[in-house]
Structures are given as C-alpha cells and as structure tokens.
Simulated scan of single mutants.
Amino acid sequence: MITEVAILRIKRGTRQSFENAFNEAQSIIAAMDGYLHHELQRCIEEENKYLLLVQWQTLEDHVDGFRKHDAYKQWQALLHPFYDPAPVVEHFEKIY
C-alpha cells in the first residue's frame, strides 16, 4: 500500500466551490482500480490550503491507472481550475 500526499492551495474566494467540486470528483477516484481510501483535510491556519491523502494498493495504480485513465480528464476539469499553484504530489510507503 502507498499513500499519495498532495498539498492543495486554491485560489482565494473559491473555498466553497472547490469543496463542492471535490465532493463530485471524489466518486471518480473512488471508482479506480487499486483505490483504497481518501480524505481531504482543510488547513486551520490557512483557509485556502488543503491536504489530500489517497491510499492506493500500488504506485502504478495511481500513476499508470488513474492518471492515464480517461476519467482523469474529468477529475482535472473539476479540480485543476482551483489550484494556485499546481500541487506537488508525492508518494509514501508505510514503514511501521
């Protein structure tokens, strides 16, 4: 299992619209092969900052499965207009 970690910074004044779009987009990611779980957290100190955690069975499920799937275009259309700047996505594996 791996965890995808993304810090999402969104444009000011778009918080509610972003959360509504994410509510719609989460069904896209949840339908992907290898998907296990996700959560979106809003930062307390910075209202336009979020933490997205997604657990996948393998790195390939995310990179090759989801990002190369046609459904990723819908994910992008829903969420990418809110990002400022584009998020950095990293992958982690549990040690303990």
Rank of each mutant, 00 (worst) to 15 (best):
V89R: 06
I29R: 07
N48A: 08
Y83L: 11
I44N: 14
I95C: 15
T14C: 08
S27T: 12
L79M: 13
Y83G: 06
D33I: 04
V54H: 00
N48R: 08
L59N: 05
H37W: 15
L36N: 07
Y83H: 15
T14R: 05
C43G: 06
I7K: 00
E60F: 07
Y72K: 04
I44C: 12
M1E: 12
E93G: 11
Q55D: 10
Q26R: 13
A77E: 09
K94F: 09
K11T: 11
E45K: 11
E19F: 03
L53F: 04
Q16P: 03
D64P: 00
T3A: 13
S27L: 08
V5T: 09
I10S: 01
Y72I: 07
H62Y: 10
L40K: 03
D61F: 02
V5E: 02
I95K: 14
K49G: 01
A30G: 14
D84T: 15
I2E: 02
L79F: 06
D61Y: 01
F18Q: 01
G65T: 06
G34T: 04
V63E: 07
E60A: 12
D70P: 06
V54E: 00
H38K: 06
K49F: 02
N48P: 01
D61K: 00
V63Q: 11
D84A: 15
H38L: 10
D64G: 11
D64Q: 13
G13P: 05
H91V: 13
H80M: 14
E19V: 07
N20T: 12
V5K: 05
A6D: 03
E46I: 10
D70I: 13
E4R: 04
M32D: 01
N20L: 12
I28Y: 08
E60I: 06
D70V: 13
A77S: 15
L79W: 03
Y72M: 13
Q76I: 13
A71G: 04
Y35P: 03
K49Q: 14
L52P: 00
Q74K: 15
K94Q: 10
M32V: 09
V88N: 07
H37P: 00
V88F: 14
Y72L: 11
E24Y: 06
V89W: 03
I44W: 14
N23I: 04
G65W: 01
S17M: 08
N20G: 06
G65V: 02
E19Y: 04
I29L: 10
I10A: 01
K68N: 15
W56I: 02
R67A: 12
F92M: 09
D61I: 01
V5W: 04
V63P: 00
H69T: 07
V89H: 05
R15G: 03
I28C: 06
E60M: 07
F66H: 02
Y50T: 01
C43P: 00
R42C: 07
Y35L: 04
Q74T: 14
E47Y: 13
L78M: 14
F18T: 01
R12T: 08
W56T: 01
G13N: 10
P87I: 11
Y96C: 12
E45M: 08
A21I: 08
V89M: 12
G34C: 05
L36K: 08
W75H: 10
Q57G: 04
A86S: 14
K73Y: 06
S27F: 13
K73Q: 14
E19Q: 12
A31F: 05
P85V: 13
Q41H: 13
W75G: 00
S17H: 12
F82A: 05
I44F: 15
A31N: 14
S17D: 15
